[in-house]
């Protein structure tokens, strides 16, 4: 808030030292993003140079050892899994947020919220493990093989639900009480109030939450790696195993060399680009929307 804008303040030596080191640390932290991007570029340069962008989509298949680098099916895998998860999680999350505010008794509402917060903190590897030992056998029993796009969608939905729900919850909490009171004074039913007052005033906030959830789903690695089967193919049904870009990196980084390694960095760069796009869109919305806490 208060700045040392004056060029004349009487800095003692200690002040100079402090401001110098603080500035250095801040510039380092701020430059970290650039460093990450620079390294991704640097490492994926051989791929861009030797293979070229088009071959990632025109090669016959993903056989990096045979110099064949088709990423298309993994891009589709990523897209199907994350959009499916968002489509499944968003309505549930929004309804749960409404539940917390308007339906649950106060005690239950507090516990429900606390539960969702805990859910948000469960590590993805635990979700993945649970999916692997509980969900996948169930799906396999119903419709073999088991590890599938469906399992990925379910686990991802479960993981991003808390993100969307907590953002929606906050934006509903910021709806001015006067709106709710005047809606009640007009004799609105609960349904009309939610539909005509709450949702319109919070739609930007909720959309922000969905974008953040989508970003999380796109970048998620461990859970999808553990439940999706990791077969490189474009899925045609919900029960087909898939491999996502993130899982591909995690599986092959250990032994990848040369162009193969560069191709993996390339897909990381691509993922990062997507996620950065969604996160900046969400941040942009957040700053424009007065009903979402800026915190």
């Amino acid at each position: 808030m208060i700045s040392s804008s004056s060029n004349i303040s009487p800095h003692s030596k200690r002040d100079d030292l402090l401001s110098g080191s603080v500035r250095f640390l801040a510039l380092t932290a701020g430059g970290l993003l650039l460093l990450v991007i620079a390294f991704l570029f640097y490492e994926s340069w051989p791929a861009l140079h030797h293979i070229g962008l088009t071959r990632f989509f025109s090669d016959p298949d993903w056989y990096p050892t045979d110099n064949s680098y088709r990423l298309t099916s993994m891009v589709w895998g990523t897209i199907f899994a994350s959009t499916g998860a968002v489509l499944l999680a968003s309505p549930l999350a929004i309804l749960s947020a409404l539940f917390c505010h308007f339906y649950a008794p106060p005690l239950l509402s507090r516990w429900f919220r606390r539960m969702v917060e805990l859910l948000a903190g469960i590590p993805s590897v635990v979700f993945g493990f649970w999916g692997l030992v509980v969900l996948v056998p169930m799906i396999g029993h119903w419709h073999p093989p088991g590890p599938s796009l469906l399992a990925g969608i379910l686990i991802l939905a479960f993981m991003i639900m808390p993100t969307i729900m907590l953002v929606a919850h906050t934006s509903i909490a910021h709806v001015p009480l006067a709106y709710i009171h005047s809606a009640s004074a007009l004799g609105f039913s609960r349904w009309s109030m939610m539909w005509h007052v709450i949702l319109p005033t919070t739609k930007v906030g909720i959309f922000t939450g969905i974008l953040l959830g989508l970003a999380r789903a796109l970048g998620e690695t461990m859970a999808v790696l553990m439940v999706c089967g990791n077969v490189v193919q474009t899925p045609s049904r919900l029960f087909d195993p898939i491999r996502t870009l993130t899982a591909n990196i995690a599986l092959e980084m250990g032994y990848a060399l040369g162009d193969h390694r560069a191709a993996l960095f390339m897909s990381g760069l691509f993922l990062m680009g997507l996620v950065v796009l969604f996160v900046s869109m969400a941040e942009g919305l957040r700053h424009r929307n007065t009903y979402v806490a800026t915190k």
Partner: peptide
């Protein structure tokens, strides 16, 4: 008078 105005952006 005590230059606190310096601190106000």
């Amino acid at each position: 008078l005590n230059r606190l105005t310096d601190l106000i952006p």
